[in-house]
Design a protein around this nucleic acid. Structure first.
Lengths: 331, 331
DNA sequence: ACCAGTCTATAGAACGTTCTAGACATTCAC
DNA sequence: GTGAATGTCTAGAACGTTCTATAGACTGGT
């Protein structure tokens, strides 16, 4: 049962195929320098023995590990979507992904250090909370790409979503439906809450509309609470900071006897898996995880290919219209 | 900017401290065999140079890597909670966790192979979908622990939650509140749906109650749909297969003009992060991610310590009572 | 004085790969 | 027919650790 037989090495395959270790290495890597006939022979021997290259040794020896380190938060469902897309993006460019989670007793520095220790050539950190000082420290050891956060100093690349554009899409959409009294339930002290709030003000004023902003937050409770403060003078439409908050808002409107979208339209932000699948069918601004993930991978690869200096890339979000927005009620 | 200076090695530290490589290794590992004075000296030199051990080399050379491989699905939020807890559990026992995700273009076999290639001593697979044939294949190379699934053959350990006990808790709770017409919206073809359905039947019959079962599924839509089929003869209480389905049920009841819990009580399953934080305040059966995670880690460690044969462990869930359950309406 | 035991330290092999340099054949150009 | 170029292969060093074996310096007991 527990007969842990030693796993076969290059040497074993070499002996079985009657060639040298180096040649087996060449064949396994798909590198040029082996005749087609021997290539077949070696591959056959490897298959026979159940040989798999040892990634530790491979990583240790090779000049280029072609390994991209990716850190994510276990507490953020959206990060999982990015992880998913990053695997595909990396594979396309001939890179592997090494994962490291930021978890309860495991701070971000630890997660990042672990990736470096594994031999990652570059780091992609999803919504890092580290100071730009510390980020710069990592950047001295390998290219670092910050994903979902752009105020990370000039030593670090960043790929983020255009918050202004996202809010503009939401305002545009609602304005086109005839809404005029639009309220933004903001994200409080959250990352990028300021950007979205400012964008809301700008876009509303540009259209000659008054920008009502209500303090909110990241959770359903925050949305619910914000909604309560609107009691007595309900808006025609609400743009929430994120989907979870939007859900709270919807809940609040309902308990106040208002229908969505017949009486009030609601727009979320994130287009989270939840918003998509849920019975809620939330109209939401999508940051597009796959897009962001591949952009981050691309940027990391470019830096490794010798791109001069860190850049701050911004991707444009798009609006996904579902069932929580509709024409404004004539009054 | 891109001055990638070579990272310091044991050799560099050894030279700086004026000792041998081997001694530095001993100090860095905290192994016995170094005088306290030199230990300080070496540590100081390492700190000075910013030395960090190279995990590739370390993993390659050491007999015991003390590395536990953990595979999870990016699509399952609950898995993230387990990953979180696994880090803590492993650290407590002096092990590290290596992560590998099952993602879109990345099947489970690939995730598991990668972990083995990295030198993991044991594998913990969260809700594996592999056949017991394939699982046994991995088990020949290293101890494998299946988490959240127990029908995995006799070559593989499993740690799962007692579905029968979970359902019993829910039925008990509702019965104690005076509910008699209780409906189970089941999980369709999902893993452990059968177990929960059977448990529901048994527990209801034991109490002389008729076990109504309605086909459901994993998502909010499934719950919503199931609810629609109950129209006309609403139950007094509903036990859903999971929290997401429970949410759909609640939504369905509401649109039918029924209040929760005043008119109908609803119990979910999973006690997901979502159910906890949400404004919904769902009463739910908790599988307790930390408990399951540490149990899985423990089991892996025991197997590595030489535990004879694979075992199938079952952990008991508990009920978290929140605001979606209340006394049955007298009629 | 001597041996056994303990503590500290080191040299050098080993882990399983990739890389560098070069050997040997064969082909090609002239 | 010669030199260069190309294609195939190999020996052996290297990557940065840990491990095994052993050396030397002390102790303390006889």
């Amino acid at each position: 049962m527990t007969e842990q037989q030693r796993r076969p090495t290059l040497m074993d395959v070499a002996e079985a195929a009657g060639v040298s270790r180096a040649l087996v290495s060449i064949v396994m890597r798909g590198a040029p320098g082996a005749a087609e006939s021997t290539r077949k022979k070696v591959l056959e021997a490897a298959r026979e023995l159940g040989y798999r290259p040892d990634s530790r040794a491979r990583l240790l020896r090779s000049a280029r590990t072609r390994l991209l380190g990716l850190s994510f938060f276990t507490s953020e469902p959206f990060h999982a979507e990015i992880v998913d897309a990053a695997y595909a993006g990396a594979a396309e460019r001939g890179y592997e992904i090494a994962l490291s989670a930021v978890a309860s007793g495991r701070p971000e520095t630890r997660a990042a250090e672990a990736l470096l220790d594994m031999g990652c050539e570059a780091l992609i950190l999803i919504s890092p909370t580290l100071g730009s000082q510390e980020l710069a420290g990592f950047a001295r050891r390998a290219p670092v790409v910050s994903l979902l956060r752009d105020d990370v100093g000039d030593q670090v690349d960043s790929v983020s979503s255009d918050n202004h554009a996202g809010i503009r899409l939401a305002v545009e959409h609602l304005a086109a439906l005839g809404h005029r009294r639009i309220v933004h339930v903001d994200g409080g002290a959250a990352v990028s809450a300021d950007q979205r709030r400012d964008a809301f003000r700008t876009e509303m004023l540009r259209r000659g509309l008054e920008p009502f902003v209500v303090p909110g937050g990241l959770t359903e409770e925050d949305g619910l609470r914000a909604c309560a403060s609107l009691r007595g003078n309900p808006p025609s439409a609400v743009i929430a900071f994120n989907d979870r908050s939007a859900l709270g808002v919807i809940e609040g409107l309902r308990t106040a006897g208002l229908r969505v979208p017949a009486d009030v339209s609601v727009v979320g932000y994130d287009d989270s898996q939840f918003a998509r699948l849920s019975y809620v069918q939330l109209t939401s601004v999508s940051q597009d995880a796959p897009l962001l993930a591949t952009a981050a991978v691309d940027r990391a690869v470019e830096r490794l290919a010798g791109a001069d200096a860190p850049a701050h890339l911004v991707r444009t979000p798009h609006l996904v219209v579902r069932n929580t927005t509709g024409p404004a009620r004539p009054n």
